[in-house]
Structures are given as C-alpha cells and as structure tokens.
Design a protein around this nucleic acid. Structure first.
Lengths: 227, 227
DNA sequence: TGTACATCAGTGAACGCGCGTTCACTGATGTAC
DNA sequence: TGTACATCAGTGAACGCGCGTTCACTGATGTAC
C-alpha cells in the first residue's frame, strides 16, 4: 500500500504524534534534553501519562526521534545552502540561522553528550549527509581560492603536514572525492563555526560588549579565503 | 585568627569536604552534572544522606563549588602557561591537556548551559582571569608576528573591520591594554580551540579516522602565525 | 442498511524508584573552670 | 586532673515529589459480511 491515501485513523495518529513532539521541543527548549518528561507532556496535551505509549515506545524512543529530526533538519538546511550557490559564507550563515532558531536543537546535535546515549545507525548516516554537503562547498571554495592568490598563512610552516595525514585518513569523507586541502578546510569550518556558535548559544558572549554576528562574519571571511 | 594552625576538628572537616567533592567529581565524570546525587555520594562514603548537609548547604551549593573549582583550576593552568614562555602554542596545548584530563570538568565550564543556573559573581571574576592570561599571550604573539611578515590572510577583505568594532567594544577585556588585533586574536583562540576541544571531548571525532591531535596542532599553528 | 466483530485511543490505579530536604535525636569530641 | 557544659558529626525516620512504566479495562471508531 502506497502512502498516498491515509485513513482517518492514520491521519489522526500522525497528528497527535506531531503534537507530542511539538510539546517535547518546547520542553527541551526551556529545560534541555534531560528535563524532558513524558508525564509533563501528557499533562500539557490534556491526556494522562500512559496514553503516550500508544505513540512512542517510551522516553528513549521519543528522544531518539527528536534527535533524528534535528539531524534531518540540519542536513536539509545544509543541502539547500550548498546547492543555492551562496558558497561557504552562505552555508555558514545558514548554519547560524538554523542554530539561533532553536539553540537546544543545536545542542542536541553537537552539545555535551548525553551520558549513556548512543545514536542509532541511521542518524550517523544523516551526519554523513551533512559532511557531504560541507565537502561539496569546500571543494568549490578551494577551486576559487587556488586560482588568483596563494594559500594564505599556510606557508608559515612549510608544506601542510596535516593535509598529508588526511590523504591517508579519509574514511570519514565516505568516498567523497574531495582533495586533502578541501577535507582540511571542511574540518576547520566544522570546528571553528561550532566553536563560535556553541559559545554564543550558551550565552558566553553576553555581557562582553562586542557583536557576536560581526565576530562570526569575520571568521567566515577567513574560512572563505585561504584558510 | 590566622589560617596557620587548624584544629583537629577543622582538619577533619575539610578532609571530609574534600572527599565529598572527590566523589562528586567521579559522579560527574560518569554521568554528567545533571546526574549528580547527594544521596548517592553519601552512600559511596558510607554515611547516610542528611549527613552531607553538615558540609554543604545543599545540592546547588555543592555544584556551584565544583564549578568554581573548575574555573579556578583552569585559571591557574592558564596563568602558569602564560608565564612559562611557551607562547600561544604552549597555552593551547596546556588547555588541551587540561580538557582531556577531565572532559566533564571542561563541559562544566564551557558546555551546554544548565537550564536555570546562573553563576555567582566571583566565578565570572575568575573567568576574567582566564581571559587576561589569554590576552597576555596574544599581545606577545602579535609583537612576534607583526615584525617579519605581514598579517597573513587578513588582507583578503581590506582593513580589518572587526578590529575597528573591537576598539570600541572592549569592556570584556576588563581594562587590559591589549590592542584590537590582540583582542581579535584572543577571541579567535577561544572560539577555535573550544570548537575543536568540545567536538573531540564529545566524541564526535571518534571513528572518523584522522588523529585529533594533529588537527589541533594544525589549528594552533595557524593561530600562532598571522591569524 | 444493519448487525457482529476487531481495532485501537485513552483512562485510572498502581508499582517501585530515587530524589532533595526537614527534623528530632544520639554520642562523641572538644573547651572552660 | 577531674568535672560540667557546649559544640558538632552523624543517624534514622519521614515528607512530598515526580519520574517511567505496567496493567486491566472502557468506549469509540472503523471494517466485514
């Protein structure tokens, strides 16, 4: 049976599931992932605790699905940004917009790991999609940069030794044909943008006086040029 | 009365306090800050729950003191590294060693914020100490760099506009006489090193294939040269 | 169109758990005369 | 050196809470003949 016509019961079912997840996101936004409570969600929905077990196997299954949705949303955002021609700056600012839209969702993906939690395989597959989009953009950026001017500050320590290491350790790229320099640039984008965003979202910049957006833009400028 | 001679009772008291905190750190290391339980600590110490209230006003007070200790430890590490002449690379690798020694301690300082928690003033003062040590090192690094060669890739977008912004928004430096370029470099050190370390400690690099230490070293190389 | 049955959403009571915290109390350790 | 008292560490019982989860059950909604 195809997914075209859904029975009324199926429609209702997925509608309630969606509402449960919506309330769950509200709770996570206000109290973090550890503060998520099935009973509290049920109360907000006007139904009583055990009813939720009609829709989710339990708390862990609900959290896993929220995490999967977060990864999916980020992967879609990255794919769209990579394909829209905005280059690395476009991707970076799309990431920042995505992060600011829901900080706790960002932390669910890249934040402090939940003690005993281990992500299922399909989520790590989505993580690879995210990396693939980033690599696409980095390959294009390298093509632009290597033309006119040199590779910037990289020559302060001779030929790039980490690039050589990456040439032999590229399993994480999942078969992506990016050259080592692009792999390196992708890793730098990841760590640097995450560094800025996680501090900004955690509120570590508040009260410091400068404008986080300008710091972010400056970092993106450097990433887009020679790295 | 001076702190020289402590009565036997005082000695015992601070000894038990230390042991409580030691067990607390063990719990945090294995289950994160949210998993810290007074009763569990008491059980591990062979005493029963309410006894801990002789030593700490409650759970929040204990956590606050652990956070303070974490900041204090990092500030001391930074001060020592800044004064030891290792420059920016020395400071960066000292930070990485400190972080790897106890990942959860690092996350207590820079990780996902605890929902309703707000740090008391003396802790933000220690945070300023940390910044001051970083600024000291960045000022020295700028002096070294600006001599021989140019400021690297920064000229890809003309005169640095963010430096100009920083010249007018330097409250966070707390009166430190660092020039804008050093302020900028300090912020980049902070965000970039944190970006790498938080991903590494959270386990996001595991299974990717490359050596995190080499990526870190490459990033430090770039930070130590023109930024 | 109407009847018989299956499906399934939701309820309410209950279980067991661990949590932070309070309170009145016991006993040992220190101090003052 | 010995006695009287204060200090304080630690106990055990209890309170109230919210959690995830199970179970038997009710009632409505859909399906098959």
């Amino acid at each position: 049976m195809t997914a075209g016509a859904a029975s009324p019961r199926e429609r209702y079912r997925s509608q309630v599931r969606a509402e449960i997840k919506a309330r769950a996101w509200e709770q996570i936004a206000s109290a973090g992932a550890t503060g998520l409570s099935l009973n509290a969600i049920a109360k907000e929905l006007g139904m009583s605790g055990p009813a939720l077990y009609r829709y989710f196997g339990g708390r862990d299954e609900l959290i896993t699905e929220l995490i999967r949705d977060a990864y999916r949303s980020l992967a879609d955002t990255f794919r769209a940004a990579a394909d829209s021609g905005g280059g690395l700056p476009g991707l970076a600012h799309a990431l920042r917009r995505w992060a600011l839209a829901d900080p706790q969702r960002y932390f669910l993906v890249y934040g402090t790991p939940v003690p005993g939690y281990h992500a299922p395989d399909d989520i790590t597959a989505i993580a690879q999609e995210i990396m693939a989009a980033l690599l696409d953009v980095c390959v294009a950026a390298d093509a632009d940069t290597h033309g006119p001017d040199t590779h910037g500050a990289a020559d302060t320590h001779g030929p790039d030794t980490f690039d050589a290491h990456l040439a032999d350790h590229r399993q994480w790229a999942g078969g992506h044909p990016a050259p080592p320099a692009a792999l390196h640039r992708a890793l730098l984008c990841w760590t640097r943008l995450h560094g800025h965003l996680s501090l900004e979202l955690a509120g570590h910049f508040t009260g410091m006086g400068f404008d986080p957006e300008l710091l972010f833009a400056a970092e993106v400028d450097e990433l887009a040029g020679g790295h």
